[in-house]
């Protein structure tokens, strides 16, 4: 009788510990994810919300951002976008396809000698501006280029 009671007590404590461990284990990855992947900005449905999400609500126009992308993209599933920022101290380059369901496509943090240059291929649902936002020393600059898409890249 007494032994059973001991066993039950022990079992109860062990189960409690496991539950705490699981809770702690579950907390960690979600916190890391939140810090690394900017969910609010990437889930934003409008360009202004996406800009707010990356902390660049009103970037200034700049001629020192060069965007190389096709004028007419025959295939919206693969639109090459090449961005060169001549702004000194470029830290972050964000690329926004204005009319995509979630406009923010990608953002790049550059450090330790990485030049203000990135080259990626994006999917674009329809013709729209490709907007680039550069963060240099806490100030935000922007430039845009129109890409006409003949076949959208979202329907597959």
């Amino acid at each position: 009788m007494n032994e059973l009671r001991r066993a039950l007590l022990k079992g109860g404590t062990a189960a409690g510990t496991v539950a705490v461990a699981i809770a702690a284990g579950l907390m960690r990855p979600s916190q890391v994810l939140a810090a690394e992947w900017n969910k609010a900005a990437f889930d934003a449905k409008s360009v202004s919300d996406a800009l707010k999400g990356i902390g660049a609500a009103s970037p200034a126009d700049s001629k020192d951002i060069l965007i190389k992308a096709p004028d007419i993209a025959e295939n919206g599933a693969v639109v090459p976008v090449e961005v060169t920022s001549r702004i000194a101290g470029t830290q972050t380059i964000a690329i926004i396809a204005e009319k995509n369901p979630q406009p923010l496509a990608a953002s790049f943090d550059l450090s330790n000698g990485a030049e203000g240059y990135v080259h990626v291929r994006l999917k674009m649902g329809q013709s729209s501006n490709v907007k680039v936002v550069v963060n240099a020393g806490g100030k935000h600059y922007t430039a845009a280029k129109e890409v006409k898409v003949t076949i959208g890249g979202c329907g597959g």
Partner: peptide, 29 residues
């Protein structure tokens, strides 16, 4: 990372094309 020092940290959405291509440049290598 280049020689253990981080040079690029990117965050992507689903708008990046299938089998993604990425190009970048690092000074001082």
């Amino acid at each position: 990372t280049l020689n253990g020092r981080q040079v690029l940290a990117a965050q992507w959405s689903q708008a990046v094309s299938k089998n993604p291509f990425l190009g970048f440049k690092v000074k001082g290598g």
